[in-house]
């Protein structure tokens, strides 16, 4: 069991609105609901999942196993921002290993990925992000960064960014 957490009251209010909208809609709206809930809460804890399960009328274990299956859903704390670096062949040929190294160094995490100790940023090595013509490529949350150079990483991921 992951540790209990407390949502802020604006988060609670936003979550309630989402659940209200999806109430009784069933499994066909599970993925949209999870996406929206996670956009508010950052990651999906057991209490939030329980509420989603009740609202949609979907078994608890289904909510859990779906989050476990899809890499963009999190049931553990993650950084407030997520940087996804593509390391598949076209990006690899264009030097993605250097990008991964620069990100890991900047955040003080392993080159396989991880969350900075201040909880600010999570680094993920992500499967092909479909921007092969802009290799090497990374995303910071929803923002695309193509033809990225190792020297840009401190600016992209630094404290002020």
């Amino acid at each position: 069991m992951t540790a209990a957490r407390t949502l802020t009251s604006p988060q609670m209010a936003a979550l309630r609105q989402i659940l209200q909208r999806y109430r009784g809609q069933g499994g066909a709206y599970l993925l949209p609901c999870l996406h929206e809930a996670q956009a508010v809460t950052g990651w999906l804890d057991a209490d939030t999942c329980t509420e989603i399960s009740r609202a949609l009328n979907v078994p608890l274990v289904q909510v859990h196993e779906v989050i476990e299956f899809y890499t963009l859903f999190y049931n553990e704390p993650v950084g407030r921002r997520i940087v996804r670096v593509c390391d598949d062949p076209p990006c690899f040929l264009a030097g993605s290993s250097e990008i991964v190294r620069a990100c890991a160094r900047q955040l003080g995490v392993d080159e396989k990925g991880g969350t900075s100790s201040d909880g600010r940023v999570t680094l993920e090595i992500h499967p092909c992000l479909g921007r092969c013509e802009q290799a090497p490529f990374l995303m910071i949350d929803d923002d695309a960064h193509g033809h990225v150079q190792p020297a840009q990483i401190p600016d992209l991921l630094g404290e002020g960014a």
């Binding site: 709206y29 993925l31 859903f73 499967p127």
Partner: peptide
């Protein structure tokens, strides 16, 4: 909106995904 699973490009896996399953 998919959620990070290459397999969901397989048509029947994609249906499962729309239906709210793995």
């Amino acid at each position: 909106k998919g959620a990070g699973a290459y397999i969901c490009g397989e048509e029947t896996a994609l249906f499962e995904s729309i239906e709210g399953k793995r």
